[in-house]
Structures are given as C-alpha cells and as structure tokens.
Amino acid sequence: MPANPSTDLLLITCASGKQSTALLPLLSTWKHLRLAVHSASSATRLRAQWPHAEVIQTDLYSPSNCSSLLKDVSIVLHIGPSYHPHEAAIGTMMIDAAAHSHGSGTGVLKHFILSSVLNTQLRKMMNHDCKRVVEEALMESGLPYTILQPTTFMDNLPLQAFIAQDEPAFTCGWNPDIKFSWLTLSDLAAVMYTVLLERESHFFAQYPLVSTRAPLSFKEVLGIVSERIGKEIRVLKAPFEQAVENLCKRLYGTVEGVDARSRDAAMRMILYYDSRGLVGSANVLEWVLRREGCTVEEWVERAMEGR
C-alpha cells in the first residue's frame, strides 16, 4: 500500500545537504520526520527550520548509531556522504541495520530508498565505485528498495552570483566543452517525493535521473545562462591541482586536513570528467514524474523569479 505521511516515520540521512534541502519543503505535511546530520551547526539550523522534525546529530560510521537511527522507522532515504573515505561502509551499515528492522517483512521498515549516482558502472571514479558497492549490497539485502541515480546538478553552478556580478566568470575544473547530462535539485526532489508516496510501484527499481534531453557542455549551459541574465559569463579552465583544491574547498569548506582518500576521489573524478563527462537519458525521469524535466532555460527563469 502507499506510504502514509500521517503515520509513517521517515528517516533522511545527510539531511542538511543540498538533496535534502530541496526535498524537505515538499514534506511539510509529513508528521513524523527523523533527520540525521553530522555537525552541531547543521542540527541547530534544521531544528530552527523544521521544528516538527526529530533532528539527530550522529556519526553514521557506526553500526550501533545506524541501528539507533532506524528504530521505529518505516521508510529510510539514505543519502550517503559523498567522497567520504568510508562511504561504502556507511551505506552497508545502514543496509544491515535496515534489514534487521525489516525482519524479512515482519518488521516495521517498509522501504529503503538509496540516493546513488548516474552510471555507477564507471569504476574509474572512486565516488561512483563506492555507490556501486552500496547498490550491490542493497540488491542482495532482501529489502524492498528503490535506487535513484542523479546526474550532474545544474544547481552546483553559482547562478545567483552570476546574476549579482557585473562581469561574471566561471572557472571549470575540467574541459568545459565536454558533454554532460544535467538535473535540477527540484526535479530530484519531485522524484524522491513521488517514490516516497507511491512506494510499492517503485520497489526493486533503479532510476537514472536526468532533466535535460540533450547532453550539454558546461560552456553551452553557461551560454544559455548568459543569454537569459543578459551578461556574458567568461568560462575559464583551472589547472589540475587548482581544480582539485577548488572541489575540496566546495565540498569541505577548506583544503586543509582533507583525508587523502577523499582527495584521491576528487582527483579521479576531475580526470574522468575532463575527457568523458557524464551522460544519460531523460526518459525515466519523465516517466516517473509524468512530465518533462526542467530545462536550463526554465531553471534560470525560476531562479530569477525567486521560485
């Protein structure tokens, strides 16, 4: 049967990140929310934003913490900590705890939703390979699951900064002429909400999620943005080491003290993107949402209108 927002307890991990931030406004009528975060600052912010939710500050790299989080949970949306040196282990711990709570269908857990990444088969990228391991563990767990595989987010582009600046510029970490498929966070959130509510019809599915029908390079996307905001955005390419530092700073807020394994993952991704990009089809997203995905033009217009 479909999920019941009045009674089902929903757990979301990495609940202070960009994916959860896009989803949470859609859950305003969901009565029982448990939001797991890592830092005290994130916990404080979410408690202020979502006072009806139970916000738990915890370290997911712990079997006992994962088990505690899943107590009485009906649905879990597991968003793993990308580039974390133990991302695969954390995902496996969450799955093991969920399988125990599911009890082969006799327990309270009804649905495990995993936010993964498009094309986990691309093992040359460590962040993709970690998620591939988690996907495999989930498929073999006996849990009723849905795997969501988002591609590159448009929202990672600093659109508001472009709008505010007189002479906007963007420094790309890889070849800006390489093609990518793109997804908006709003489309991802809409898919998550649909899968949450409809539940059984999405069991044992893997959904590659792309908003844009045709692959577009960063240069092409920024050209569309330039046209819409009425300002030309200069597109630059950072040297490799600078690109790694820029990505680490975006992910962690600093380049100091970043785990070497996380830095390795950033380096591998940048090298891969520099020659191959990341592409997929919009068909599945359109089927799940029963509409077309958001275009780059629509994304810019919505941002300019404050939506």
Rank of each mutant, 00 (worst) to 15 (best):
S68C: 15
Y61K: 14
Q165S: 03
N156T: 00
D259C: 13
F240Y: 10
C66F: 07
S275A: 13
D59A: 05
F170G: 06
L236I: 15
L148W: 02
T194F: 02
I79P: 12
W30D: 01
G142I: 00
S74A: 10
E245Q: 04
L11P: 05
S281L: 07
E136M: 13
L278D: 13
E140H: 06
N175L: 00
S201W: 04
L26V: 01
G91Q: 10
I75N: 08
L77A: 14
A238L: 07
L271T: 11
S217M: 05
E136Y: 07
L251E: 07
I113N: 00
L271S: 12
A36R: 07
Y61E: 11
L188M: 05
W182F: 06
A43T: 09
W174L: 09
M304Q: 14
R291H: 01
E305L: 14
P168S: 11
S275F: 13
F203I: 11
V191S: 00
L24Y: 01
M192D: 05
A98Q: 02
E286D: 05
L271Q: 07
G277N: 05
H86T: 04
T184I: 03
A238W: 01
M269D: 01
I178S: 07
Q19M: 06
T152I: 08
I95E: 02
A48T: 15
V288M: 13
T171E: 09
G173T: 07
T13F: 01
S101I: 09
S281D: 05
V117D: 10
A243C: 02
R234G: 15
A189Y: 00
K237C: 08
G230I: 03
K124S: 14
S186R: 08
D129T: 15
L251S: 02
R199L: 09
A53E: 04
K231V: 06
N175D: 01
P215R: 13
H32Q: 04
S101V: 10
L122V: 08
